[in-house]
Nucleic acid binder design. Structure first.
Lengths: 153, 153
DNA sequence: TATTGTTATACTCTATAACTATA
DNA sequence: TATAGTTATAGAGTATAACAATA
C-alpha cells in the first residue's frame, strides 16, 4: 500500500467541494495561528523565512521573482527583503545586463539562519507530527502537495 | 481501496516529521495567501468570518470564549467583535448572573451574512477543489481533521 | 485578590498609487 | 512607452501592558 487509509470516518458530505472548502479553511487558519504562537521569542518570521528558504532552494533571484513566487505584491517584497538585508541575511547584487534589475542572494549568515530556523521554527509542528502515525503523515504529505498545486493554480 | 493513491510519488524523506513540517508550512502559507487575495472586493474578512461561523455553529458566547476558541488574545477579539457589532452582525447581551461578562450573539443580519459569505468566500477554494478527483478531496478531508487535531493540541 | 473585558500603544504584513531609473 | 523597483500611505490583525468594573 502506497498511501494512508483515512484515519477517521468521512461523511460523504464532507468531501463535497463547498463544505470541504469551509472546513479546510477553518483548519488551515487554526494551524497557522497555532504556529505563529510557537515561533515567538527569537528568530525570523514567516514571510522572511519563506523568502530565505526560496533563495536557499532555488538560488539568487530578483525581488519581482520572489514576489511572484510568494504571491505578494512587489512593495510587500521590498519591505521583506529590506528587513532581511538589514539583518545581514541577504545581499543585493547587480544584474549582469539589466541595470533596472536587482539580484537578491543569500549570505552565509542567511544560509546558517535557514538551517537553524528550519529546525527551531518547526519544532512545535514537527513534534506534533511525530506523534501521528506514519499513515497520517503520509496523508498530510499528500495533502501538502495537493494544496500547493491549488495555490499555484 | 478506500482512499486515494498519492497523486505524486512520495519520497520516504518527505514524511519525516521535520521535513514534512517545513513542507506543510510552505503549502499552508501559500494557500492562505491565495485565499486572502480571492476574498477581496466585498464581504467580511477571515477572522470576522470565523467568529460569525463559531457563533452560528455553537450559539452565543463570551468574548473570552471566542478568543480562546480562535486562539487569539482578548484584545484582538475585542476589536474583531467591535467591528462585527458596528456592522450589525452581532449584538451584546447581558450575562444572566455575572455582570462582568458579556454575551455575544449573532443577529439575523449576521446569520444571513454567514450564509452568503460562506458561499462567496469559498468560491475560489471550492472551485479549485471541484477540479480535484474524489480521492484527492478525501485526502484533503482527512488532512483537515488531522490538522485540526494538531491545532487543538 | 482574581476575573472579565477594554483601552492604549506598537509592530508585522499587506495593498494601491505614485514616483524614479533604466530599457 | 514599458518594466523593475522603491517610496508613501493606509488598513487589518495581532500582541503586551495598564486600567476599570465586578466577583
Amino acid at each position: 500500500m502506497s498511501n494512508a487509509a483515512p484515519t477517521v470516518t468521512l461523511d460523504k458530505a464532507q468531501t463535497r467541494p463547498g463544505n470541504l472548502a469551509v472546513d479546510l479553511q477553518t483548519s488551515l487558519t487554526r494551524v497557522m495561528r497555532r504556529m505563529r504562537v510557537h515561533r515567538g521569542e527569537a528568530g525570523i518570521r514567516g514571510p522572511q523565512f519563506q523568502v530565505l528558504t526560496v533563495l536557499a532552494d532555488m538560488g539568487p533571484m530578483s525581488p519581482s521573482a520572489l514576489a511572484e513566487n510568494e504571491r505578494v505584491k512587489p512593495p510587500a517584497m521590498t519591505r521583506t527583503v529590506a528587513s532581511l538585508e538589514e539583518a545581514g541575511f541577504v545581499e543585493r547584487q547587480a544584474h549582469a545586463s539589466d541595470r533596472r534589475q536587482v539580484v537578491i542572494a543569500l549570505t552565509s549568515a542567511g544560509l546558517r539562519e535557514v538551517k537553524e530556523t528550519r529546525r527551531r521554527r518547526d519544532e512545535w509542528l514537527a513534534q506534533g507530527l511525530s506523534k501521528l502515525t506514519q499513515a497520517e503523515r503520509e496523508t498530510l504529505a499528500s495533502a501538502s502537495q495537493i494544496l500547493r498545486r491549488l495555490a499555484a493554480s
